[in-house]
Amino acid sequence: MFECALIQGELFRKLIASVQDLVQDGNFMCDANGISLQGMDSSHVALVALALKKEGFVEYRCDRDVTLGINFANLAKMLKCMGAKDRLSIRAQDEGDSASFVFESEDSSRVSNFELKLMQIDQEQLGVPETQYKAVIRMPSSEFQRICKDLSAIGDTVSISVTKEAVKFSVGGDIGSGDMSLRQSESGDVDGDDSEKVMIELEEPVQQNFALRYLNNFTKATALSKTVTLSLGTDMPLVTEYKMDNLGSIRYYLAPKIDE
């Protein structure tokens, strides 16, 4: 038996919204520690990895490891029926062919029950090796979203280059070219919210090119976190990570554009 409950069901809806345009369906792997999900886009350019810790749930019970094969568009249809402040409970039997989703309003005056049919999904799991990245940038997620959106009107590839002082996003297209640089926030700056700052940890300057189409897709997760972390290395995928307080994180890996 698998059972879990989230006070803020809305978070789960946002999570599914952050995955469903990139990956059609996938296996929720539930074990005693939490829920994980991995999936690639149909062109095998990006990988999304979701990790939810049991501590983030108000209730969590997983007697035996279960795999829930889920079509995200179908799940999203059911989650649409959830109120913004509803509590969400998910239940599944060990060998069941469906999972139940229960939405309950704050005062328990409204309870909604849905059964989602599960799928058998034969999906290859990829191992992501532990890597020391050359540059790690933390910045406001809304700022990253705006940059990706605005630059994609000019070109389809962004070059991200990082130095100790700044991270630069450059684009070129038929109409011309441009770049936007964000400077590292002053370390002595005690005023203001930490989530508003741009922090750069740099081992070595790095520069790589990425398809804006995918980055724009990743920014669907902006609603999940005030900040985003970008990790870059040489000839390795970019990691775009959104952390949700104590619930866990969603990470997107994007293969760089490489010389022919």
């Binding site: 990988l47 990829l126 293969a255 554009k257 490489i258």
Partner: peptide, 14 residues
């Protein structure tokens, strides 16, 4: 000129 890389190149099949 550049081409789009594939993600599997960087990760290990399990």
């Amino acid at each position: 000129s550049q081409v789009q890389g594939k993600i599997q190149k960087y990760f290990i099949k399990q």
